[in-house]
Design a protein around this nucleic acid. Structure first.
Length: 221
DNA sequence: ATATCGATTATCT
DNA sequence: GATAATCGATATG
């Protein structure tokens, strides 16, 4: 079943993802999520970004995963049903968004690392504390990249917090945090080791759209 | 352009 | 008490 966000944004026809999409290995979900839209419904309007970079976090055998040491109050969502938001707070400063994968009882998730801004760009910039008045030109890639390239940045741009969003369904049409398919097709994907971890750092579980300028870090190929 | 470092707190040992 | 799936500022080439 499809929906139209045309009235509020420049987005066209979009399709909700099914729970089955997330009911599989996080590495496959991470790859499949590239090119989808993450949509935030705010009172002032729709915010949306295209998913351009993800990382898979597995279960017990993956020492870098929050689920590695077993279920706790913090990581419980990772052990729950697929397609739900796992939001954690890190370094005393930042929130990061994941989506749960695999069936209820089996832990696993995908970390969203970067978005290409698509709709509500000025509001996202505002949420990031970027003052629009002066030298900031939101038609420039360098300015847009500052909005949502990096897990902490994109969470801030969409005003995602643990208190507000942890445990939410990302596949429910009425959820204010939603993942949809607008038909965009990804040409080529690059796979590298994950960023910012020490344990299990050698595994190639980071996925991004090859050549996309909104991927975090500086190496895009 | 790349490297290093401090911030700041929930969570777990 | 130590750590952390980060970011932004500052220093240096």
């Amino acid at each position: 079943m499809g929906y139209s966000l045309m009235q509020m944004t420049s987005l066209g026809h979009v399709t909700s993802l099914k729970a089955e999409f997330f009911n599989r290995d996080p590495s496959r979900v991470a790859r499949a999520l590239l090119g989808k839209l993450l949509v935030r419904k705010m009172p002032r309007g729709i915010l949306a970004g295209r998913i351009v970079e993800t990382e898979a976090y597995l279960g017990k055998g993956d020492a870098a995963a929050h689920a590695a040491a077993g279920r706790t109050a913090r990581n419980a969502v990772l052990f729950g049903p697929p397609g739900h938001a796992y939001v954690y707070f890190i370094y005393g400063n930042h929130y990061c968004l994941n989506v749960s994968c695999l069936p209820d009882g089996e832990p696993g998730g995908v970390l969203f690392r970067a978005l290409e801004p698509v709709a509500g760009i000025e509001q996202m910039a505002g949420a990031r504390g970027i003052e629009l008045a002066k030298e900031i030109d939101l038609t420039k890639i360098s300015s847009l990249k500052n909005i949502s390239s990096g897990p902490g940045r994109m969470a801030e741009a969409l005003e995602i917090t643990r208190e507000r969003d942890n445990g939410k369904s990302l596949i429910n049409t009425r959820s204010d945090l939603w993942i949809v398919d607008d038909g965009h097709r990804v040409r080529r994907v690059t796979v590298t080791p994950r960023i910012g971890i020490v344990k299990s750092a050698e595994q190639p579980l980071r996925y991004f759209i090859a050549g996309n300028p909104f991927v975090s870090g500086r190496r895009v190929h």
